[in-house]
Design a protein around this nucleic acid. Sequence first.
RNA 1: CGGGAUGUAGCGCAGUUUGGCUAGCGCGCUUGCUUCGGGAGCAAGAGGUCGCAGGUUCGAAUCCUGUUAUCCCGACCA
Length: 574
Amino acid sequence: MRVSQMFIPTLREVPAEAEIASHKLMLRAGLMRKLASGIYSFLPLGYRVFRKIEQIVREEMDRAGAQELIMSALLPAEVYQASGRWEVFGPEMFRLKDRNGRDFCLGPTHEEIFTELVRNETRSYRSLPMTLYQIQTKYRDERRPRFGVMRSREFVMKDAYSFDRDEAGLDISYKKMHDAYCRAFDRCSLDYIVVDADTGAMGGSGSQEFMVKSEIGEAVIAFCEACGYAANDEKAQCIPDNECSSKECVAGRELPLEKVATPDVKTIEDLTEFFKCSPKEFAKTLIYQADNRVVAAMVRGDRELNETKLQNYLGCIELAMADAETVSGVTGAAVGFAGPVGLKVEIIVDPEVAGMKNFVIGANETGYHLKNVNIGRDFKASAVIDLRKITEGDKCPKCGAPVKVARGIEVGHIFKLGTKYSKALGCVYLDEAGKENPMVMGCYGIGINRTMAAVIEQNNDENGIIWPMSVAPYHVIIVPVNTTEPAQMEIAEKIYRDLQAAGIEVMLDDRNERPGVKFKDADLIGIPIRITVGKKAGEGIVEYKQRQAAGVADMSIEEALVRAKNEVLEALGR
RNA sequence: CGGGAUGUAGCGCAGUUUGGCUAGCGCGCUUGCUUCGGGAGCAAGAGGUCGCAGGUUCGAAUCCUGUUAUCCCGACCA
C-alpha cells in the first residue's frame, strides 16, 4: 500500500504513560491508542500484526485437530452460578443487567460455557476425544492494568478445551496442544521456555506455562541449564540446604534453651546484627490468616515463604499475612517477636527449619528472643513441607545442579483440568457398556495481545521495532529518496508492482518527505526489508537493507527483487 | 485495596512555591517558497473552558474543599 494513503500516526516523542519498550513502541509506531486504562484500539498497522499472530495460532490449532467456533462475550449469570464462579470471580468480573434486571457478565474465561455446550450436545464415547477452541475477546476488570496491552482489561484470548474419556486420553490431547503451542510461538520467533506451573484455583492434575524471558515479566521462573528442568517459582520444588554455619550445629548437641532480652530487635537484619551471626541461624515465624483459622509458618531466616505452597497445603481460599492485632492475639507479643514455642496454632515448618539445631526464634514476648531452640524438644511441628521460595543457585530438584532464576511473560498456559468442571456441570458421556462417566477435560490459553507485546519486547532496538517476517505488518518497504525525481519514482513503482505480483506485502513510501523522515519511520514500524531508490536509480542500482542487520548493499533492481522474494518466502516457510 | 506521582493544544513540557495570564515553548499540523541519503530552512497561520465541580478573592492554571482520570510501587490475580 502507498504510505501517503495509510493511517499510521507515528510519534516522535514517547507518551508519558508508557514505561516499557513494547508499550512505548506500540504507541510510537502508531499500532494502537489507549481508550481507557487497560483498553486499547488497534490501528491498521497494529491490527495487521494482531491478525497474523491470530492466524498463526489458528493454523496450529487446526493442524492439531482442534475445531474453531465462536461464542459471545456477553454471558448470562446462571452458567457461572452453577460452577460457583459467579462469586469466586468477585469484582474482577464485569457485571451488568439487561432491561429485565437479569444478571449478565462479560466473559472472563469460558470453561463453563464450553462444558455446558458439550454436555448438552454430546453423549457418546464415539464423539470423543474432541478439542474445541475460539479466538475471542475476554474481559477482566483487573485491579491494576499494566504496561499497555501486557495486562489489560479487554484482551483477545485463544482458548481451547479438550474432552476425553479418561486421563490417558487427556494426556494425548494435552501433548498435542503443548506441541501446537511450541510451533505457534516458534513461528512468532519468540524465545520462550515451558515451565511447570501451579494449578491454583483451576484445580487439576498438571499445568505448564509458556514464558517469554523478559525483565519486565510479572512471573518469576526457575530453570536448570544442566537438565532442562523449569518451573514457575510458585511451583518450583526446593531442596533443603542444611549446611550449617554454627559450631553447635556441627557438633550436633542440643544446648540448653536460653531467653535473651532483645529490645527493639525485630527484623532479621536487626537480629544478625544483635547476635553477630548469619541469618541462616534464625527461623522466621510468620503468622497467617487462612480463611477462618490462624496458622504459623516457619522458614529459615534468609529464606522467603512461598504463599502458593502454603495455600495448597492448607487448601484454603484466602491466605494473607495476619494483621498486627491477630498476631499479638495469638503470640501475646508485638509483631517481630513471634516464635513457635508455646504457640497454640498449627505450625507448618519448612524442611530446612526441621533440620536446624540450636537456632534463634522470637519468644512470643515483646523484647525477647529464644536461643538454642530445638524442634521436637522445644516445640512440635504440625507438618513439615516445602514452604520456601526458590532462589538463584539453589539445587535443581531434578539433577542437583544450581538453578537460575529469571522473569518471564506468560503468553500461554495449558492445564489438565480433569473432571472438575465436567462433574460440577454434569458433562458426562456413555461408554460402551452404557455407563455414565464424567469427561476428562483440559484447557489451553494463549493471550494474543500479550504475545504481540512480547514479540516487540524481544525484538527492538533504539530505532524501533524489528518484526520477525512471520508477523510483520508488511514484508517490504520501498523508499524513493526523492519523490519529485521521475526516475526514482518509476523504479520504485516497478519494484512495488513486481513484489505485489509475487504475493509479497509491500509498502511504497510515496510521501513527499525528506529521506530522513522516511528512514526513521521505516525503522520505527520495523518493516523487515527496506529497498531504497536513490541517486543511483539512473544506473539501475538500488539499496537493500534488512531491518535487523547493520549494513546496506547496493545491487541491481533485478537482484533486489529476487533477494526480497527469496527472503520473504523462506522466512515464511513457503 | 494500601503507598507515591501526575492531569496545561495531537505528543513532550514550562508556568503553580510568592494569585496580576490577554497562558507560553519545542515537536507535529495548514499554506507558500527553497531544499532532498538519517526526524530540513525561511515566512505566514490554525489549534487550549489550564481534568471536572464548588469556594476564597477586585482578580485563580496558581490558594482551599471535593471529585474524577491516568501512571508507578506493593498487595491481589483462571
